[in-house]
Design a protein around this nucleic acid. Structure first.
Lengths: 206, 206
DNA sequence: GGGCTAACTGACGCATCAGTCAAACCTTTG
DNA sequence: CAAAGGTTTGACTGATGCGTCAGTTAGCCC
């Protein structure tokens, strides 16, 4: 409903992908547990039977939709980041791409919040979640290491620790934006993260 | 099921409180949307009719249960913090009390995750959420100001900013603990937060 | 054309729950 | 004691939605 690409899929076997695409957007809009198979079918212009034809049960559609969304987002980020060679700029670019503005990125953050709530309660969601989360942390860590090689980041910083902190800080700030905490806007969030990067990785003294 | 006080309520009109107590624990265990009126009644040793006698609808029970939990946790924290007079120690005590160990505190964190997921989707949850979140941030901010008055914290730090950062960092770290991100344990979380406090508020240079 | 299969449909069966209600129960007051 | 009013019960209802399945259509090979 928001900004997801809804262009006609070329042939038949990405019907599956169409279903997943509709599903993750519905999750982002209405929440994990408010999504009905009938809603998915309606958005896809198909029947509930078809959804069950491709996925054994509702849980499977939902779980795969989460993965699908996170995967696409990661791929998109990666490809855009590759174009930026300076590590400092690349990190700032990453931060910028992750700001939960309205639209696509905000919906993706909504997915993460749903994912967290679900993974807390249902341990079977954790392995997949942790894989994706680790991949994200690793992206950050690599940029830090790259920056140290390039000499734009302090050599003394521990990339692992910095990644842990920066991801935590990003998540926490995103929560405040998404839940509408007064005083936490997109701008505040960017400032907060940029400052953090500067203090941890750029500033001269320790 | 975990550690909530389940002692016999003295008379009749805290039957309401008993229901809320059972409800928030069920939310923490099973998730917001998996809680059934019948479950609440069963835990309370009463009937579904009684639950509806005290609360007009399911939504009311759930929403009030969230508030109830957050309120109790806040009161408990406040009373324990009051005993610590040195601001630095008080902040460390706060951090310690908020580590999501198993049991009560972990359940309370689970409630926050559910709250966030819900507030993201349903704007009507935001006002209450933001009120509680603001109260928490204010607690942190006041401790920082207190520390500056006492001279144990750097005067240059902006209490508002520090509170924003520390709460975000805490939330982010808690998510990683609750979702079981490898490498993020209670110990790591404490270390991360204590380091942050030291760097932002205690270390000499800026 | 005639068999075969894969893709798709949508009505139906069945389970699950929120909320209702009339009756039962208990407590208080006159 | 009796009436009144507050509280509790649990069977019931109506709605909702998942998953199934018998049936349909479309493509494909012989």
């Amino acid at each position: 409903m928001t900004t997801g690409a809804k262009a006609e899929p070329r042939s038949d076997e990405d019907r599956r992908a169409r279903i997943l695409d509709a599903t993750w957007q519905l999750i982002a809009e209405r929440g994990f547990h408010a999504v009905r198979i009938a809603d998915i079918a309606k958005v896809c212009g198909t029947s509930t039977g078809t959804v069950h034809y491709y996925f054994p049960g509702k849980n499977d559609v939902l779980a795969e939709a989460l993965k699908y969304c996170v995967d696409r987002a990661f791929a998109r980020q990666s490809s855009q980041l590759r174009a930026v060679h300076n590590a400092h700029e690349r990190l700032l670019k990453l931060i910028d791409m992750q700001l939960p503005r309205v639209g696509q990125v905000r919906d993706e953050w909504a997915i993460w919040l749903q994912y967290w709530a679900e993974a807390t309660i249902r341990p079977e969601f954790r392995p997949a979640h942790n894989e994706y989360y680790a991949r994200w942390q690793e992206t950050v860590r690599r940029i830090v290491q790259r920056g140290q090689r390039q000499g734009v980041f302090r050599a003394a910083a521990d990339p692992h620790i910095v990644a842990l902190r920066l991801t935590a800080l990003t998540d926490g700030a995103a929560i405040q934006v998404l839940t509408g905490v007064p005083g936490m806007t997109i701008g505040t969030m960017r400032e907060l993260l940029v400052d953090f990067v500067h203090q941890e990785l750029v500033a001269d003294v320790s």
